[in-house]
Design a protein around this nucleic acid. Structure first.
Length: 416
DNA sequence: AACACGGGGTA
DNA sequence: TACCCAGTGTT
């Protein structure tokens, strides 16, 4: 069968190409399966150039699985700050603890065990087993699906789970005997450097003569993929609360809940803006918006008064587009220990499970009813100055906001 | 099977 | 500016 010949051709030439073209990457300088593992988690949804500095910092700070398992979660998140998909970091640490407890601190090398690690799915399991242990397992990521769909002219929608499975069967058959590690890396390297999404460099491609996609003139229309629906817009009223008295020079931040969007990250407090009734969306200086924010602050037990619009900031997630309207607010009256009991109007709704002294108080966040009446964690809050930012992990948008604020304030202070 | 989950790149 | 990239976990 012709296809069998194409497969042999493809594998041999790709492997040869890789030996001449592979990039010198930090995780390729190591034989340590832990290093391979960390790099593969970071490389999920993230480009090589972005990952490199994070990888080096991460390995420097957590050189071994044990070091990672024993670290405070905040330090792991801080090390991941700006990289996105923060559950990857939390799952990685969870898995490090699994490895420490169940596998004597060594990354396991059998399929069941690797697959059972938190944050390790079909792709990452295959990548660890093949790259670190040279096991003949497929590691099918987006690069691989693109390369295979073009060379073998496969028109299945790569957004479907079924297609990934089909690709895995093919990718496994393509692995030359004893060359799983190099071959799987060759496949991904080729997707990253030559068989790129937009303008594939077919003229330098080592397998171009037999690429069915290119021979059909279809290289730029493959792979076939249904596109995601656009992110839904969301406007949020954001409070930049400036402290007074003993909090002078500092601003108020809060920690997000332990699950969901940006779990456990720190942020400026913000709430949904009222739905814009007419065509005109909530304007920055809208009196209604100001009033709404004032009430939200009160409900959250924060004694502060919105004073003026500070700035707007946009941030797009894969599924939500945030517009943050940021207001400068003044702390009112006395320094209130923000987490203190009496101020929150819904303190009485505290759930029994979270009563202090119940033993698990340190691990289990206290629970309250949130705006919609659901049980929610009571947010941890802190007053911080610029220097304290190093101790808290912020999503990029709040990093930018805080830096803009502190920059402006410092410039104003030194200008007079 | 559909959706949640960040951030940065390219055209 | 608009669009693209795409693994794992949860439901």
């Amino acid at each position: 069968m012709e296809r069998r010949e194409d497969m042999v051709f493809f594998s041999r030439h790709l492997l040869e190409w890789y030996h001449g073209q592979k990039r010198d990457l930090p995780w390729r300088r190591s034989r340590d399966p832990y290093h391979i593992w960390v790099s593969e988690i970071m490389l999920q949804q993230t480009r090589v150039d972005t990952v490199i500095p994070y990888f080096n910092r991460f390995i420097g700070k957590f050189p071994t699985i044990e070091a990672l398992a024993d670290a405070p979660e905040e330090e792991v998140l801080k090390c991941w700050e700006g990289l996105g998909y923060y559950s990857r970091a939390r799952n990685l640490q969870h898995a490090a603890r699994q490895v420490k407890e169940s596998y004597g601190g060594k990354v396991p090398d059998d399929r069941e065990a690797v697959f059972g690690l938190k944050g390790v799915g079909p792709y990452t399991a295959g990548a660890i087993l093949s790259i670190a242990f040279n096991r003949p397992e497929p590691a099918v990521d987006g690069n691989v699906m693109r390369v295979l769909s073009r060379f073998f002219l496969i028109e299945d929608d790569i957004a479907k789970a079924k297609t990934r499975v089909k690709m895995e069967v093919l990718a496994k058959e393509l692995i030359p005997s004893g060359e799983a590690s190099h071959f799987n890396q060759a496949l991904m390297e080729h997707g990253a450097l030559v068989c790129t999404p937009k303008s594939p460099r077919c003229l330098v491609c080592p397998v171009m003569e037999r690429c069915a996609g290119r021979l059909a003139g279809r290289e730029t229309s493959l792979p076939v993929k249904t596109k995601a629906k656009p992110p839904r817009p969301e406007t949020r009223l954001t409070a930049l609360v400036e402290g007074r008295g003993e909090h002078a020079g500092r601003v108020l931040i809060r920690q997000r809940p332990s699950s969901g969007l940006l779990a456990r990250m720190w942020e400026l407090p913000h709430w949904p803006a009222p739905e814009a009734p007419g065509a005109g969306a909530a304007r920055p200086g809208d009196a209604a918006a100001l009033d709404r924010l004032r009430r939200s602050l009160t409900e959250a037990g924060i004694a502060a008064r919105p004073e003026e619009h500070f700035m707007a900031a946009e941030h797009t997630f894969s599924h939500i587009h945030w517009t943050l309207q940021v207001y400068r607010c003044r702390e009112e009256a006395l320094p209130l220990p923000v987490a203190a009991e009496a101020q929150a109007p819904y303190a009485a709704q505290r759930t029994a499970a979270a009563e202090p002294g119940s033993g698990a108080a340190d691990e289990a966040p206290e629970l309250f009813a949130d705006e919609s009446g659901q049980s929610a964690e009571r947010a941890e809050m802190r007053w911080i100055g610029r220097g304290d930012m190093a101790q808290y992990a912020f999503p990029n948008i709040f990093l930018k906001l805080l830096n803009a604020y502190f920059d402006g304030r410092d410039a104003e202070a030194s200008g007079r």
